[in-house]
Amino acid sequence: MLVLDKINAGYGSAQILRDVSLEAKPGEILCLFGRNGAGKTTIMKAIMGLVRTTAGVITLGGQNISRLRADQIPKCGIGYIPQGRRLFSELTVEENIEAGLLVSNGGQVVKQRVLDMFPPLKSRLDQQAGTLSGGEQQMLATARALAIEPKVLLLDEPTEGLQPSMIEQIRNVVVQMRDEGVAVILVEQRVDAVLSIANRVTFIENGYSRETLNASVLNSDKSLLDKYVGV
């Protein structure tokens, strides 16, 4: 289980996160909802060690990972699909997946497994990642993160700019990961696209973590969505 306990973090002297606490359990999807600038992406970066925490503790399976170097975090089993995909654009599709395999040492078996999840990538292994379509890039970003064989998967706005059929495919993979016991933390602006697959939802507001609810509560009562996400 990934636990954030009263995390403070920010960029330079600008503090963004204040006493953020949340838990992601194996086999569940935790959605983080909040307005633009609420601090959702910074939470992801803080977990990955890309933003230094100034207070609080992040633990994974009881192990404190908040003082580890950023390159040690994925070795603990945390996969990251950042906002905007951030592929290694000049590397080929195959090389991007191999970058994920650097952590897992899973070799051909894992590579074949992630390619089976995204068949369109199989015919584009030698193509530069930056030349793929938006949907294919999202597939590759997901495949690259899954090549780590993560215990925890962080997805930041995975449906951004995608057509409905592609959103459905990404949703299916996320659900499959959840069903295989992976703890998923999903940041998404489009509440309607992911609420149906979420198990729990934590609202983020002005750098604070507010209420955490079962997703079923929100499906029947949308008032909290209006409060924290509405414009």
Binding site: L50, Q72, I73, K75, L91, E98
Partner: peptide, 24 residues
């Protein structure tokens, strides 16, 4: 080589390289 892949990944995106376990 794997070392070359690490080098090129670091060149393209230092943060993402770290997010894939590359000791930049």
């Amino acid at each position: 080589t794997k070392a070359g892949l690490m080098m090129r990944a670091t060149q393209l995106d230092r943060d993402m390289a770290q997010s894939f376990g590359i000791p930049v």
